[in-house]
């Protein structure tokens, strides 16, 4: 098997700047409940995501849904950045 190195910009949400847009590539948290809740609110892999605010809480927009999350949960959402503005 041969591997080719792709350079995909892939980052936990809490490392991104406000107004960054991207696509969710993974949702990982040791607490399965949190994953369940995020899934139920429409946060799935492949969905477009915008980081609207970082303080006092993270505010994200996934599809047409706006969700407030704390830093720990933001850390569990991995994003491939598509645009920066």
């Amino acid at each position: 098997m041969f591997t080719q190195s792709f350079s995909v910009y892939y980052s936990p949400l809490n490392f991104l700047a406000t107004k960054t847009q991207g696509v969710i590539t993974a949702i990982r948290n040791k607490d399965e409940q949190i994953v369940k809740k995020l899934l139920a609110m429409g946060v799935h892999t492949g969905m477009p995501i915008t980081l609207e605010q970082r303080f006092p809480a993270f505010v994200i927009r996934v599809g047409r849904t706006r969700i407030a999350i704390d830093k720990d949960i933001a850390n569990s959402i991995k994003v491939r950045v598509t645009t920066r503005s």
Binding site: D31, I34, T65, R66, I67, A68, I69, D70, D72, I73
Partner: peptide
């Protein structure tokens, strides 16, 4: 217990 986590939908 563990620290509380926060997530909440923000309706318009």
């Amino acid at each position: 217990g563990n620290t509380a986590c926060f997530y909440m939908e923000i309706p318009p």
